[in-house]
Design a protein around this nucleic acid. Structure first.
Length: 993
RNA sequence: GCUGAAGUGGUGGAAUUGGUAGACACGUUGGACUUAAAAUCCAAUGGCCAUUAUGGCCGUGCGGGUUCAAGUCCCGCCUUCAGUACCA
């Protein structure tokens, strides 16, 4: 019998589906274990071989835990709201729901063929109204809560209202907007309803506020900070500008400290925790109030070095700071305004790219130093960011390099307040070595003492206090998109009202067009049925709006991370229409035991979901305020792109770095000449070509003339080239020119310059796997050619799980032939070979060695090495001609998490009626590994000289004696007399000469 | 700049607490089988030297150190990758 993997895999996938083999129950005598994957966004491109890496790892672990006697929850679903489906809808008019449904079908087929042990009965989709009902529900709960800093938790907003009625907000210690002003109970009571609502919004955990947001004109929507990379949008790379807009926000900043503290309690990777710590950006220091001379205004600053306050020789405000226009003197007005205008023109990106140039302007105003009462000039400068702290700093040039550079540039005095330190060249920033001088009552104190003292003094005069600042900003929660969760919100007199949770979900309305309206409203502005009847509690036609009983509904939708912030809990009870999940379910499953997913979500999903979990914990809905005990980041599988080198530019370089005649440059040429990669690296060839091709344009011609006059001195290169589909290239990097021409007709008449042997070679490079780079390897093909078990084994074999690694299909033959060898251990031409014969001690040793190693490997998530262990085991058992069922049966259980299909098939062949997944993991027994004698490697002065086989039960003294005896007879010590024999029982014997 | 991870054959990568470095696989070379190819099987494969076998020397980014013994521990560098960045 032969190993027909395609038939076998189909058979068992059908069997698992039909018998619901992996359905998890919410109660069991067994201990529970929850293995979670980050659910995928179902894109139109389908899966490539990189996607399932994490799913294979989690599947191995889930299957292993089942063998180990756990009741395992291993669900899967889809993060099915998102921009690509919407953009496709804009182009084609196809409803995103239809596209999404189709994509999900493809994903499901592709996932199924890899043989995952998901419990599909618990599938969730974020775009399903039955699911997003609960996303909306949490939103309402957030709206109805504020953050109490005294009890350090979210509390109902009704408690806040009670206090306002009793005593106003003077003593309230809650997370709120900075512009909240104090009021008494009496004042509160006479406020209009609208004013009261406006005040409450400043406390709610989700609130509507006019904030400066990141607006992306190309995408037509706002973006959260984590959706922006290097000043452009993460998706599409479009420019982002700052804009003031009224938006929903989440008061995640209230949870900053708990999000930071919680990291200590969870087993996530250090690098990921570090990313989150940086993102939260806690800094401890003080806020100091400076009075502006001849004005009523004050400037608050935040500093981490209040101890250096006597070194403050100027202040710097961000150009956007609101006080700038108020305090600028008439003489300085022109200069300041010109500067503000100049900085406003610079985009975020320019500002980031150019951090060296020092710019600024003097406002003409002065502040009072709180202690010396000296006048301190107030400057503006764009090195101070409006978005961090208060947008103002006290500048201490001797203690901060940026202040130092600024002071040097504008000739501002740099007083030295450090003892025994030279600050003529650069600022002194070492806190630990700081001894304060020239600072009145701080003289002689170190950093810690001085900080403590100065804060006390600041508090005495009422001009400052200790303060902790966080970089973490509140997260903007509105998106001007169609394909997302609608808000359960309608507006009365412009004030947001929540729809009662009884009437959820508020489902997404149909629209004609998925683009924003002509007046710039979000796409939901196109909906005709999108108004709230507050009496009948239904969504009705917009034209009925009367602002008395029928009101407009919110037009924004929620961002992508809304749906993914609570899905892990919903899996516990996914079909519950009455509650987000039952207490019974959450108390049984508790939290995720193992979460596997990519590290790219470090400051997005993985932070927001922790925030929601903490909020739900405060509401008493969940038993833990961290939802995932352990998290592993799988690395990415990269593709190997193929580049056809085209002559489209010449880059040239002369001399070496550090040498004065270093000269480098380049210019573009428009040609349709494609050259084989070997030639593209051949200097003689490139130089000949360069001489032949004269560029157009004055500057390029100048460069051309310069280098041909001295061409031998230059090294020439050309750009990477254009992507070719990797399927047009064979294993020796040779391009099939005809196929390539048919694929890209613009190269039909191109000149292809081949190598001497007539071949045309491409350049290879490792990149992220992507459709646009034509380097995608489709798992469908791999499953067809080698089978899902080969794919699973190979993805694990490729290298450590966390690591980034390139895919190379060629290597898959190794694991594939392992499976064939495994099959041959059970079957030959005549049929089943397995018998009930007594196993040999060699085979028992092989088996138990394998059990031990595989168990350790899985527990440590080093799946790559256990694949090697299997290969060794099968090779050894084949060599031992092992046919014993007592060996071959447990072996299958070991392999089953990795290669479940072949394991099921062979398990059935051994006469089992039940799925192998119900079998217990074999128990390791040390007795089979114990030997009667052991080889003691013996080293002499550290060098291994010989080995001595001795019985195991010898004492240390016996071994020493034996070694000395042996040494006498063998003359291994080359005539020297040993001084000392070192014996480490069971390990190694050393002889010191 | 800061933070984190890493550096081992032609390649992906193994190596428990410091204990015979290079497991396993790919690739390459040679051989068997075959009309041939595929498939399969066998052998060799870190470098250098030696060979009649046994052998010898060097080798885990670089330079030191600790140790009977270092890929592993310590000190000082270099390089690469990732994240982050005028954060006061």
């Amino acid at each position: 019998m032969k190993y027909h993997f395609n038939e076998i895999e189909k058979k068992w996938q059908d069997y698992w589906a039909k018998n619901q083999t992996f359905k998890a129950e919410n109660q069991s005598d067994k201990p529970k274990y929850y293995v979670l994957d980050m659910f995928p966004y179902p894109s139109g491109a389908g899966l490539h071989v990189g996607h399932p890496l994490g799913y294979i790892a989690s599947d191995i672990y889930a299957r292993y835990k089942r063998h180990k006697g756990f009741n395992v929850l291993h669900p899967q679903g889809y993060d099915s709201f998102g921009l690509p489906a919407e953009q496709y809808a804009i182009q084609t008019g196809q409803h995103p729901a239809i596209t999404t449904e189709e994509n999900i079908k493809t994903y499901r087929r592709q996932l199924d063929q890899i043989g995952f042990s998901f419990d599909w009965s618990r599938e969730v989709r974020t775009s399903d109204p039955k699911y997003y009902k609960w996303t909306q529900w949490i939103f309402i709960k957030l709206f109805e809560s504020y953050y109490c800093k005294d009890s350090n938790q979210a509390r109902p907003i009704s408690e806040l209202i009670t206090v306002f009625n009793q005593e106003g907000n003077l003593r309230i210690n809650a997370a709120c907007d900075e512009d909240v002003t104090f009021f008494s109970a009496g004042e509160w009571k006479v406020f209009s309803f609208k004013t009261q609502q406006e005040i409450l919004l400043k406390y709610r955990l989700t609130y509507l506020a006019e904030t400066e947001v990141n607006w992306c004109p190309a995408l037509g929507t706002v973006l959260a900070n984590d959706e922006i990379v290097n000043g452009v949008s993460e998706r599409g790379g479009h420019p982002v500008v700052r804009k003031k807009m009224t938006q929903w926000s989440m008061r995640i900043s209230a949870y900053a400290e708990r999000l930071l503290q919680g990291l200590e309690t969870i087993d996530w990777t250090d690098s990921l925790k570090e990313s989150q710590r940086n993102w939260i950006g806690k800094s401890v220091g003080a806020s100091v109030t400076f009075k502006v001379k001849n004005h009523d205004e004050v400037i608050d600053v935040f500093t981490t070095r209040p101890d250096t306050i006597f070194g403050a020789s100027f202040m710097t405000l961000a150009p956007e700071h609101e006080l700038v226009s108020k305090i600028t003197t008439p003489e300085q007005k022109a200069e300041v305004e010109a500067y503000i205008e100049a900085t406003a023109k610079r985009s975020e990106r320019d500002r980031m790219a150019d951090v060296k140039t020092i710019t600024g302007a003097f406002t003409g105003a002065y502040a009072d130093h709180p202690f010396t009462k000296e006048p301190i000039p107030i400057w503006i400068g764009d090195y101070v960011l409006a978005g961090y702290g208060t947008g103002a700093v006290m500048s201490v040039p001797c203690g901060d390099q940026r202040d130092f550079d600024f002071a040097k540039h504008f000739n501002i005095p740099i007083p030295n307040i450090f003892e025994g330190v030279d600050i003529s060249e650069e600022a002194f920033t070492d806190k630990e070595k700081t001894i304060i001088a020239n600072s009145d009552f701080l003289n002689g104190l170190n950093y810690k003492e001085a900080t403590k003292k100065i804060i006390e003094e600041l508090e005495k005069i009422g001009q400052g206090q200790g303060k902790t600042n966080y970089r973490l900003r509140d997260a903007v929660f509105s998106r001007q998109r169609y394909w997302g969760e609608p808000f359960p919100v309608y507006y009365v007199n412009g004030m947001p009202q929540m729809i009662d949770e009884k009437y959820l979900p508020i489902t997404l309305p149909e629209v004609e067009k998925y683009l924003p309206t002509e007046t710039g409203e979000p796409p939901l502005g196109n909906a005709t049925v999108w108004a709230w009847d507050a009496q009948r509690h239904i969504v009705v036609n917009n034209s009925d709006i009367d602002h008395k009983t029928i009101f407009p509904l919110e037009l924004n939708t929620m961002p992508g991370w809304a749906g993914s912030s609570q899905y892990f809990n919903r899996y516990m009870d996914p079909h519950n229409d009455n509650e987000i999940f039952s207490q019974e379910a959450i108390n049984y499953w508790q939290q995720v035991d193992l979460y596997i997913g990519g590290s790219e979500h470090a400051t997005g999903h993985l932070l927001y979901s922790r925030f929601w979990q903490k909020f739900m914990f405060d509401l008493g809905l969940v038993p833990h305020d961290e939802y995932a005990k352990k998290l592993i980041n799988q690395g990415m599988i990269l593709g190997t792109s193929a580049f056809v080198r085209r002559i489209d530019s010449f880059m040239f370089e002369k001399g070496k770095q550090g040498v004065t005649d270093f000269h480098t440059g380049g210019y573009n040429v428009e040609t349709n000449i494609l050259v084989s990669n070997g030639l593209a690296q051949n200097q003689t060839f490139l130089k000949d070509l360069l001489i032949k091709i004269k560029p157009e344009g004055e500057i390029a011609l100048k460069a051309y003339n310069k280098i041909i006059s001295d061409i031998e001195e230059y090294s020439i290169s050309i750009r990477q080239g254009i992507h070719a589909d990797v399927s047009f290239v064979n294993s020796s990097d040779e391009l099939d020119i005809e196929t390539f021409k048919n694929w890209r007709p613009e190269f039909k008449d191109a000149e292809f310059i081949c190598e001497e042997d007539g071949t045309f070679k491409v350049k290879r490079d490792v990149e992220k796997m992507s459709k646009s780079k034509y380097n995608v390897v489709n798992p469908d093909n791999i499953c067809h050619d080698y089978g899902a078990d080969s794919l699973r084994l190979y993805e694990m074999f490729l290298g450590p799980l966390e690591q980034y690694k390139p895919w190379n299909t060629a290597g898959i033959t190794g694991v594939h032939s392992f499976l064939k060898k495994l099959w041959k251990l059970y079957f030959d031409d005549k049929g089943l070979k397995v018998t009930d014969t007594k196993p040999s001690s060699d085979s028992l040793k092989t088996l138990h060695k394998t059990i031990k190693k595989v168990e350790e490997d899985i527990e440590n998530f080093s799946f790559n090495t256990s694949v090697s262990t299997f290969m060794i085991a099968v090779n050894e058992l084949t060599a031992q001609k092992c046919t014993s069922k007592a060996i071959l049966e447990p072996l299958l259980i070991l392999i089953s998490p990795y290669a479940p299909h072949i394991a099921e098939e062979l398990w059935e062949a051994l006469g089992h009626n039940e799925s192998i997944s119900t079998a217990d993991f074999p128990v390791f027994d040390e007795q089979y590994l114990v030997e009667s004698t052991k080889n003691y490697p013996i080293s002499f002065n550290g060098k291994m000289r010989f080995t001595l086989e001795l019985p195991l039960d010898l004492s240390k003294e016996d071994i020493e004696k034996a070694v000395l005896e042996y040494e006498k007879t063998q003359d291994q010590l080359q005539g020297r007399t040993p001084k000392k024999v070192i014996v480490v029982p069971g390990k190694i014997v050393n002889i010191v000469g």
